[in-house]
């Protein structure tokens, strides 16, 4: 069994977001990065399948040099090898461009299972995984919160609204885009981190993968024109002053509501 896990490195959830010079994205220099939260659950699920039987787990990521660190972490957690697409030509790609690169890797690896996150914490697109599945002609399920059965087909639970679940059966190979909370994510052990140093990270360009002409701003069908602070509406009345002042004002509000 071979499992490909797609993981993206994104700005740390506590990072201060400043808009870049041309207003098209955030200023990424000097930011702290981490593995996209959804993708840590994707990797964990793949590692659990590996722990329960026999599987090779290949982690794949597109991004600049800094991504090496995310891949090392993933290898430290137990992934077997990594593919890093490090290519400035990919910059400016839209979701479809990213999906074409990842699909090219999936086709070359021909795994039994592809596991991804449901959504990236930076762009919030929720677009890439079903696109990969379509481009690789495999069935897919998103918002996955449970995975069962390992032979031939998988039974998965998809989260719907209000906590309801949809149970679906997918033959392998297939793609699962997982929702947060489907497992408890492990930490990389010291032993794992040491072992990871010897695991291979295969660095590639889009051209190596045969999709050099399908990536970058030139090929993108969607262009991020600008990002901006959301317009402030009326917003909240902000209470100022010392903790005592603030608590006093809050108490008055609660009293006015007749709730004390």
């Amino acid at each position: 069994m071979k499992i490909v896990v797609c993981l993206k490195q994104v700005p740390h959830s506590d990072a201060r977001l400043d808009i870049n010079g041309d207003g098209t994205w955030i200023q990424e220099d000097n930011l702290k990065f981490e593995i996209n939260s959804y993708d840590t659950y994707a990797l964990e699920e793949a590692l659990r399948i590996k722990d329960a039987g026999e599987a090779e787990v290949v982690v794949v990521s597109i991004g600049p040099d800094r991504v090496t660190q995310a891949l090392r972490t993933a290898l430290g957690m137990g992934a077997d090898r990594a593919v890093h697409v490090n290519d400035s030509a990919v910059e400016g790609s839209d979701a479809l461009g990213i999906a074409k690169v990842l699909a090219a890797i999936v086709k070359a690896e021909s795994p039994d299972l592809v596991v991804t996150g449901l959504m990236s914490d930076d762009g919030n697109f929720s677009a890439v995984p079903p696109m990969i599945a379509e481009l690789c002609d495999m069935p897919s399920a998103t918002s996955v919160l449970k995975v069962d059965g390992a032979n031939g087909s998988l039974t998965v639970e998809r989260e719907l609204e209000g906590g309801a679940m949809e149970v679906v059966e997918l033959p392998k190979p297939c793609l699962l885009a997982v929702q947060t909370g489907l497992n408890q994510v492990r930490y990389a052990s010291l032993k794992g981190i040491m072992a990871a140093k010897k695991k291979p990270i295969d660095v590639k360009t889009a051209a190596d993968l045969g999709v050099g002409d399908q990536v970058g701003a030139g090929a993108a069908k969607v262009r991020m024109e600008k990002v901006y602070q959301p317009p402030k509406g009326e917003g909240a009345e902000l209470l100022e002053g010392s903790t005592d002042d603030v608590v006093g004002s809050l108490m008055n509000k609660v009293k006015e509501l007749g709730l004390l």
């Binding site: 677009a127 696109m131 379509e134 969607v222």
Partner: peptide
Amino acid sequence: NTPTGWDVAPRVAAGLDAAFVSD
């Protein structure tokens, strides 16, 4: 942009080689 929309819409876009914008 519901569990149905985000499951199928990107697939349709990729199949048509169309632009896709979510949510």
